[in-house]
Write a protein that binds this DNA or RNA. Structure first.
Length: 364
DNA sequence: TACTCGTGGGC
DNA sequence: TGCCCAAGAGT
């Protein structure tokens, strides 16, 4: 294949059709870095408003490095994969203290920062500094699997290494950032997962999958493991003085360090037996949190919340706590106003909105 | 390697 | 409706 023609056809296409995105208007390596972290496993349309707000709030490495951790995480609320923002905060602090506030230009040094993997190094260094490194994401894997008719599982490390080698070979020295972004833009808009738009593709004459009519069969992916299902009873507990009980989640695992309304995992046997309206059984579960069986519990509604590998079947209940109930950490009482400063998983925010709209106090 | 880690959109 | 997926990294 004519390397130069491939690259120039791709870059030329990109420069004609590229979308006007906020991080593309910036030449600030820090802003580009923030965008790349937000874009991990997350759609462009979702990221845009978060990016604008985050960059306005934390316009520089020094500003983010100096910021309060809890507040930084609050600005990420709703984006998911919350370890990304904690790692970004740690990494920015390290850049501020160790590298004088300038992102290191060497692969090894940047790769060593927390939350910075091979993709992010390649993307930031190529786009911000013009370093000719590959930035292989899901788009690039899909595009290359089709163009070169790669048959192996695209999720495998071997395929990734192969694709990195191919990109390294093809990447133009004069515009590595545009080349990397062009590959991603192509994957996002033309070489899409299902029914790629080959008639609009600038690489169609190079594409082996297209030549053999296999563009709908590639890339090959292994099937995913089914999600684990958990039945949980969630309690929105209001004190006599109108505060609400929240608790902090553990430092490791799902929604790590975020806040939530207390809930109890039901064994599958219990879950099968207990009807949502069987409040006697639910009272026994509430006792695991407050230490006694509440007098009067109200069932609100059921929720299904999907994570990438777990399904939560949740039943929400509310009740009034007895006077003077004291609970230790990780439990905490907060007013409705104070609650807004804490970061919750989205399902808990949805519950809160639902109860607020319906009016919990007027319910009885 | 395989699994963990969120969320919302599209069909 | 259920399933797939989207600019990945850590373990």
């Amino acid at each position: 294949m004519a390397k130069q023609e491939f690259a120039s056809a791709l870059v030329q296409w990109y420069r004609t059709v590229q979308r006007d995105l906020p991080w593309r208007r910036s030449k600030d390596p820090y802003a580009i870095w923030v965008s790349e972290v937000m874009l991990q496993q997350t759609r462009v349309e979702t990221v845009v408003p978060y990016f604008e707000r985050f960059i306005t709030r934390y316009p520089s490495i020094d500003a983010l490095a100096a910021a309060d951790e809890q507040e930084v995480v609050k600005n990420w609320e709703g984006l998911g994969y919350y370890s990304r923002v904690r790692n970004l905060h740690l990494a920015v602090k390290e850049v501020a203290s160790k590298y004088g506030g300038e992102i290191p230009r060497s692969y090894e040094q940047m790769r060593a920062l927390p939350g910075v993997g091979p993709y992010t190094v390649g993307a930031v260094l190529s786009i911000a500094y013009g370093v000719p490194l590959p930035a292989v994401d899901g788009n690039v894997l899909r595009v290359m699997a089709r163009v070169f008719a790669l048959e192996e599982d695209v999720a495998s490390a071997r395929t990734r290494t192969r694709v990195e080698a191919i990109v390294t070979e093809l990447i133009p020295r004069d515009c590595p950032g545009d080349f990397n972004q062009a590959l991603m833009e192509l994957g996002a808009r033309i070489c899409v997962p299902r029914t790629p738009k080959c008639v609009e593709c600038p690489l169609t004459i190079y594409c082996k999958a297209r030549a053999t009519g296999r563009q709908n069969e590639l890339p090959y992916k292994k099937g995913k493991k089914p999600q684990r299902i958990e039945e949980r009873a969630v309690f929105l507990i209001e004190s006599q003085s109108g505060e609400f009980l929240i608790r902090k989640r553990p430092q490791q695992g799902l929604l790590a360090n975020l806040w939530e309304f207390p809930h109890v995992l039901m064994s599958s046997a219990v879950a099968l037996e207990v009807d949502a309206s069987d409040l006697r059984q639910i009272g026994m579960l509430a006792r695991e949190i407050v230490g006694y069986v509440p007098q009067e519990i109200t069932f609100i509604r059921k929720y299904v919340h999907l994570f990438s590998h777990v399904i939560w079947n949740l039943s929400l209940y509310v009740f009034k706590a007895t006077e003077g109930l004291v609970l230790e950490a990780p439990y905490q009482w907060v007013s409705a106003e104070q609650r807004e400063r804490y970061t919750f998983g989205q399902v808990f925010n949805k519950m809160w909105m639902d109860v607020k709209v319906e009016g919990m106090s007027e319910r009885r």
